[in-house]
Computed example of a mutant assay.
Amino acid sequence: MNDDAPSEAQAPAEPDGGKTAPAEVGVGPWEGPLPAGEHWDPDLLADGDRRNVVDKYRYWKHEAIVADLDSKRHDFHIAIENWQHDLNIGTVVRTANAFLAKEVHIIGRRRWNRRGAMVTDRYQHVRHHPTVQDFVAWAQGEGLAIIGIDIFPDSVPLESYDLPRNCVLVFGQEGPGLTPEVHDAAVATLSIEQYGSTRSINAASAAAIAMHAWIRRHNFGQRVTG
């Protein structure tokens, strides 16, 4: 399996097999007088910025972007179990970056497929825990509520659960789901209401829904009812 992530300037593959030139990403060289400030990258100002970043961060140095993100990260963490090289992890990291999670935690195997992250792992803090026990000890030491997201007989609906501000949302391996060790360590296990024929949605989709639920609760003050 290829663990190499695409470069930030790399566009998605064309559906016609590459016969059409890919759309140019980003912006060209800076036009006009050069701006002043330590956060500007002289090479990007001269050559253009083709990275996948929001307009605010165009031409910024990488370390300046990370420092600015660090100054306003949210209080929730994301963790995902990685015992079988789960392909969802890259997408979870990308979504965690979008919602500005404090950190992403990989439990189990250190190596994970970064392709789905689309280089956002360069801006998102990712921490590795070799075992569930290591992860639980770390979370408890940080005073974080461990919240499992999975379908268990004792699961309660995410839609009616008041997510705590300081928490870590944990997702299991695609297929087997959360391990019993994580389930036992969690202060609550939440399920996502579904209405179709499939038993579950994949971990990346579940992570996006759960992160947005935290954002709605703590950034928009939308308290749950029922």
Rank of each mutant, 00 (worst) to 15 (best):
Q10K: 01
P12L: 09
G18N: 04
G18K: 06
A21G: 08
A21V: 04
P22A: 04
P22G: 02
G26K: 05
V27T: 00
V27I: 04
P29M: 02
W30D: 13
W30S: 02
L34M: 07
A36C: 09
E38D: 10
E38K: 08
E38Q: 06
H39T: 06
D49W: 08
R51A: 14
V53G: 12
V54W: 05
V54M: 06
Y57I: 09
R58H: 09
W60I: 06
W60L: 15
K61L: 12
A64H: 12
A67S: 05
D68L: 01
L69V: 09
D70L: 09
S71E: 13
K72W: 11
F76Q: 00
N82T: 03
N82A: 01
H85L: 10
N88L: 02
T91R: 03
T91H: 08
F99W: 11
F99K: 10
L100P: 06
A101P: 14
E103P: 07
H105W: 00
I106E: 00
R109A: 15
R114F: 12
G116K: 03
M118W: 10
V119E: 05
V119F: 02
D121V: 02
R122Q: 14
H125V: 04
F135S: 09
A137F: 05
Q140T: 12
Q140R: 02
Q140V: 14
E142V: 04
G143N: 05
L144T: 08
I147L: 11
I149K: 00
D150E: 04
Y161P: 15
D162K: 01
P164H: 00
P164A: 03
R165P: 14
C167T: 08
V168Q: 02
V170E: 01
P176Y: 00
G177I: 08
L178P: 06
E181Q: 08
V182T: 05
A186Q: 03
V187F: 03
S191W: 05
I192W: 02
Q194P: 11
Q194L: 09
R199Y: 11
I201M: 14
N202E: 07
S205D: 11
A206K: 00
I209D: 12
R217E: 15
R217W: 08
H218C: 13
H218V: 01
N219E: 15
N219Q: 12
N219H: 06
F220P: 09
R223I: 15
V224T: 10
G226M: 05
